[in-house]
């Protein structure tokens, strides 16, 4: 049920754009007020705020989403833009190329396979599996992958959020258990498993951790984007 003053506003996409900007900025302010809690990232606060606003206004999600397309269209060029930090980190990749090229395919494959196998064992439907397969991949790339696999993008976003948020405490606990204090390893693990959310966290730890996190994030994204759709096709042909 739309309030009468609201209906003229929803005709223009600028209303959805304004709501998104407002929720994003407010989410960031609240995040800083709460002293940057690692278990409650700014994006989660902002998304909850936005969902609450939509519910209170009675604005259907589809109407909102249509307007917000004016923002989300920028995800395309933003993904291309990730080529810049990737280029800037090429020397670092060269430095550690041996361990990284050995670790990345295994770790990135397992990141997808563990979750898929567990969800499959518990009887998740094929659409559902297709939606969570890219759970450790940074959002702009993951959306492309999920659309190709025939999954639900909304569900993928939820999976990304959950994965990103829990990666942060899990990495710090696991690093303590394994007695790892090398910032490069911790950063790489944060980016590989926790995509952009983990990378933001790594930059809070140190610039080195941040650089390795963005490296882990981009490499996982590229590796998964190149291989997951192919692997998926092979599996569906075989079954």
């Amino acid at each position: 049920m739309l309030a009468s003053w609201l209906s003229p506003l929803t005709v223009t996409p600028l209303f959805a754009v304004a709501l998104t900007l407002a929720a994003y900025l407010l989410g960031n302010v609240l995040f800083r007020r709460l002293h940057n809690p690692s278990w409650l990232p700014a994006i989660l606060i902002a998304a909850l705020l936005l969902a609450a606003i939509l519910a209170v206004l009675g604005l259907p999600y589809d109407t909102y989403q249509q307007g917000a397309t004016w923002l989300t269209i920028l995800l395309g060029p933003a993904t291309v833009a990730l080529g810049m930090p990737l280029y800037q980190q090429l020397p670092r990749i060269g430095e550690l190329w041996k361990p990284l090229t050995l670790c990345l395919p295994i770790a990135a494959t397992l990141a997808a396979c563990y979750a898929l196998a567990l969800a499959w064992l518990l009887g998740a439907s094929p659409t559902l599996l297709a939606s969570i397969a890219a759970k450790s991949v940074t959002a702009p790339i993951a959306i492309g992958i999920t659309e190709q696999l025939g999954g639900s993008v909304a569900l993928l976003m939820g999976a990304l959020l959950v994965t990103g948020v829990i990666t942060i405490p899990l990495v710090s606990i696991a690093a303590r258990l394994l007695k790892i204090d090398d910032e490069r390893i911790i950063g790489f693990a944060l980016g590989l498993n926790g995509h952009a959310i983990g990378t933001v966290r790594a930059f809070e730890l140190s610039p080195t951790a941040g650089a390795f996190a963005s490296l882990g994030m981009s490499l996982t994204g590229i590796f998964t984007a190149l291989l997951l759709p192919l692997a998926w096709q092979l599996i569906s042909i075989a079954s």
């Binding site: 994006i43 909102y64 940074t138 959002a139 702009p140």
Partner: peptide, 10 residues
Amino acid sequence: LAMLIMPGVV
């Protein structure tokens, strides 16, 4: 990037 993916997260 975080803001661009927000409409999807919601």
